[in-house]
């Protein structure tokens, strides 16, 4: 996937723009900050989630990190390949390292998200 086609949250998650179901993952910056991801806890497909609910838990050697739903909806698919190959998130955060697919029930919260250019700018500002 091309990052230009994605929307980003301040917590460094991405979601496909203008699609439903839409894939969700974490940004390249996030995977670098987390360092090597060694375990992924994925939800059951079919689960209904609220905006802001924890979708996925990622574990590196010394930290765990939750990935939150940027919008409400139903999980239609999960990337179960990650269970055996969590390193794919590090290798290809925008591609093979996608996490779940969400059927969006209300897309209004997505209006607050950043496009790639805005996200890049946000990252620069954050670095102090």
């Amino acid at each position: 996937m091309n990052p230009e086609d994605l929307l980003f949250t301040k917590d460094h998650e991405w979601i496909e723009s203008g699609k439903s179901p839409a894939r969700i993952g974490i940004s390249d910056y996030a995977q670098k900050e987390l360092t090597d991801i060694v375990y992924v806890e994925l939800p059951e497909p079919g689960t209904e989630v609220e905006k802001g609910a924890s979708l996925v838990t990622l574990e590196s050697v010394k930290a765990t990190s939750d990935v939150y739903a940027p919008a409400p909806g139903k999980i239609t698919a999960v990337n179960s390949d990650l269970e055996d190959n969590p390193q794919k998130i590090n290798e290809s955060p925008y591609g093979e390292g996608w996490l779940v697919e969400l059927e969006i029930s209300d897309s209004a919260p997505l209006d607050e998200l950043m496009d790639y250019a805005a996200y890049e700018k946000y990252l620069k500002e954050e670095e102090v």
């Binding site: 060694v38 375990y39 838990t57 574990e59 590196s60 050697v61 010394k62 930290a63 765990t64």
Partner: peptide, 12 residues
């Protein structure tokens, strides 16, 4: 396998 432990996972 430290991510099971309280200092990393807190209430989980």
């Amino acid at each position: 396998s430290r991510a099971r432990e309280q200092d990393i996972r807190r209430e989980k």
